[in-house]
Design a protein around this nucleic acid. Structure first.
Lengths: 229, 229
DNA sequence: ACCTGAACACCGTTCAAGT
DNA sequence: ACCTGAACACCGTTCAAGT
């Protein structure tokens, strides 16, 4: 796999640039950054159903096969998108707020970013950190925050992984259809579940996804907070 | 979509059964149960990469197009597998153990079942309960357990959803490669993360996935347990 | 009612041939 | 070094034609 950006780019001697042929929009210089940006724009416009290598190539005015000079597979493009998105996750609260509030802010921001990109979750969840430098930088910021608050060192990774697992699972909930808890014709045979769903709906200030996320996150923060020393 | 099993099956008058042609294994009578069983067997043998409608049809000795008389799509087959697998999740502890222990047993069992079927998670996570009767039965058993322990009714669904989100996210971790936390050449620039990874490895009785799951689950049980009245 | 076989409209990816 | 165009080996799904 080609490494990072070969951003030096256009190395033609000043007068000898190849003339642009009329009638075609200029083909962008392909590199991993350009591909990542175009891929994210395409996903935002067309969703992950519309995100194909052919469609991506079209937005870059190249043949699909040209992409394979810069990435090894479609999965690698997904990894590039994932890592880029992670830089939008806000870890700044670890520098300015209490540990509790920092974890809270980070977790909500993390869920927010990936709830619009759930097809990436199966990729992220099993991706070696070495393949995603910005993601690694996020872990470093969070690890530092845990360390500063006196969190037991040997449990820092486990706590972060647990929070992340909860966040990924919760990101799916955000995209669930409104009728997900509607037991329909089976309501009579599931009285406890059905009445619990009604009780939830009767409150219903937050969305069900937000209520569950808030409840679980506060339990995790409280439970982990008690481990500090 | 065709409803449930049309299991009455072979309705030929006694003497008039169509003769089996020599040389071919008998084609199974197709119905949703038969398809589900064959699909699960195929997944266990070939994984989800090898699970195609053509391969499924082959194991049933029918043409791929025949499947579409019984299911609307490949996604529907995945839903059938999902619901069938859910009947393997053990909820029995809600009848025999304390609430704490019941949640613990249920959660470990749930993660265990789906850690071998992570490609189903994107499907399950957003599936209306009405489309999965066995899954609904599981929710009923868990809801009843929460109710019996005095859990506030309006929070039962949120608590279950939060636990489930954590379980789904954690199921992915089970399948992660061993080097997932290896920061490689970036180790020097991520000292807090890297030392936390080393501290975890130095302990290392449980797998990292089990350690994170245990830590998060106990925090959720403790936090939710405090809400009972 | 439910099957087959052929076809459709795609996929991701490879590779020889060019410049 | 990096592009194009053609080809490959698949996918899931549809549908006319059969019984």
């Amino acid at each position: 796999m080609p490494s990072a950006t070969s951003a030096a780019a256009d190395s033609h001697p000043a007068g000898a640039r190849p003339r642009r042929r009329a009638g075609r929009p200029p083909a962008a210089v392909l590199d991993q950054d350009t591909i990542t940006t175009a891929a994210l724009r395409l996903v935002r416009k067309s969703g992950y159903e519309g995100f194909t290598m052919a469609a991506l190539a079209r937005t870059l005015n190249v043949a699909p096969s040209a992409l394979y000079n810069h990435v090894a597979s479609k999965r690698e493009v997904l990894v590039l998108i994932q890592d880029h998105l992670t830089s939008f996750v806000d870890v700044s609260a670890f520098d300015t707020e209490s540990w509790d509030q920092a974890v809270r802010d980070w977790a909500w921001s993390y869920r927010e970013v990936f709830s619009k990109h759930t097809p990436l979750i199966p990729v992220i969840a099993v991706l070696p950190v070495a393949d995603a430098p910005k993601t690694l930088a996020m872990y470093e910021a969070v690890s530092a925050g845990f360390r500063r608050t006196g969190f037991p060192q040997e449990r820092i990774i486990s706590a972060i992984v647990a929070l992340e697992s909860f966040i990924f699972g919760s990101a799916y909930d955000v995209t669930a259809p409104a009728d997900i808890f509607d037991s329909g014709s089976m309501a009579a045979s599931t009285p406890n579940f059905t009445s619990a769903v009604e009780r939830l709906a009767r409150q219903g200030l937050e969305s069900p996804a937000d209520a569950a996320f808030s409840l679980g996150l506060e339990a995790l923060i409280a439970g982990f907070g008690a481990l500090r020393r």
